[in-house]
């Protein structure tokens, strides 16, 4: 693969993280020795997890000076939004890297709530909170030493494309090393799909899954993985685990099902999907072994937290995007 990566001029590469766990940055390191291949074709101009940079360094760059920016993490506060816009201005190609940037990811589940209710929980009633004065973060605080600023916490979590134009998506929580190298190769060779595409395959995780599926898969009862001894050969869905594999874009090599864990859906919806949650809900419940309403209700009712299960990584880009805020507020 190293030979293929010889480009005449080195790619100017920026990597940034916003509302994310850092796993996407680790994933870049997980390519192991191939990081040298990347270094051979790219100048890494920005990578906060590895090297120290200041905003003013970025501001100094000319517009379009960066060839490719790999942006991971969702956008949840004003600093992240500012950096997203700034990097957009400096980059020719913007890549939403990882599930958070692509779909909002795990942080996106905060869209079930709003800033007010989150602050009430986090700075209010959680068991570990001691905050008798009810202090909540303020964007501006005056102290004797001067004015302090912290970023503004937004009411919503946004995917990257919801705040700036994005050229490509590389899904995964985190993207697997193979996915990372596919993306890097595509960028290095200029062999890129049409703008707006997801770099990856168009088949679902099931396509890569080695488990055996029966001709008439049916679900007798829903379980959570810890509740049963998982049969290592048989399709997880048929064992009653809410495996998202059939509704989720492949490319991960079916990693989770490979280790007896149901697919969580981190690679996001399939290309023709209307709404990944609706897709998964429809598929999983349609094959529940129930012929009348009471039975269906009892069996489907055992599924814990359908929203969290079906939109674990994708809530902000789903059809409904977030839970309704209270009627007047």
């Amino acid at each position: 693969m190293g030979e293929e990566l010889k480009a005449p001029k080195k790619i100017q590469l920026a990597m940034y993280w916003a509302a994310s766990c850092g796993g996407c940055d680790m994933a870049v390191l997980d390519v192991n020795e191939k990081i040298l291949d990347i270094a051979a074709v790219a100048d890494i101009r920005l990578w906060p997890i590895a090297m120290d940079y200041k905003y003013k360094d970025i501001e100094k760059w000319a517009d379009g000076e960066i060839d490719v920016c790999l942006f991971n993490g969702a956008v949840r506060n004003s600093e992240q939004l500012h950096l997203a816009r700034l990097l957009r201005q400096k980059s020719k190609v913007m890549v939403a890297f990882g599930s958070c940037a692509s779909f909002g990811g795990i942080p996106g589940l905060a869209n079930l709530h709003c800033k007010k209710t989150i602050f009430e929980a986090v700075y209010g009633y959680t068991a570990s909170t001691v905050n008798p004065e009810g202090t909540t973060p303020q964007t501006h605080t005056h102290v004797p030493e001067g004015d302090l600023h912290i970023p503004e916490f937004f009411d919503d979590v946004y995917s990257l494309a919801q705040v700036i134009p994005v050229e490509y998506y590389v899904p995964g929580c985190p993207p697997t090393p193979e996915t990372v190298m596919t993306a890097v190769n595509a960028i290095a060779t200029g062999n890129l799909p049409p703008v707006g595409s997801t770099i990856g395959i168009s088949k679902a995780v099931c396509d890569e899954c080695k488990r055996t599926k029966s001709d008439k898969p049916g679900i007798v009862e829903f379980h959570r993985p810890q509740e049963i001894f998982v049969d290592a050969e048989k399709c997880l869905l048929e064992q009653g685990l809410t495996c998202m594999g059939s509704a989720t874009r492949g490319g991960c090599g079916s990693l989770c099902p490979g280790v007896n864990m149901p697919c969580r859906g981190c690679y996001g919806p399939m290309p023709n999907s209307l709404d990944v949650g609706a897709d998964a809900l429809s598929a999983m419940t349609s094959i529940v072994d129930a012929a009348e309403e009471g039975d269906a209700r009892a069996k489907v009712g055992k599924m814990v937290d359908p929203l969290g299960t079906f939109y674990r990584f994708t809530l902000p880009v789903s059809m409904l995007r977030r839970a309704a805020r209270p009627l007047q507020g």
């Binding site: 429809s282 999983m284 419940t285 349609s286 269906a296 599924m303 359908p306 929203l307 839970a323």
Partner: peptide, 14 residues
């Protein structure tokens, strides 16, 4: 009939 109960829970969560 099988999809409906889950859909009910889902919209309530929304």
């Amino acid at each position: 009939l099988r999809r409906y109960p889950a859909l009910e829970t889902l919209i309530a969560q929304f």
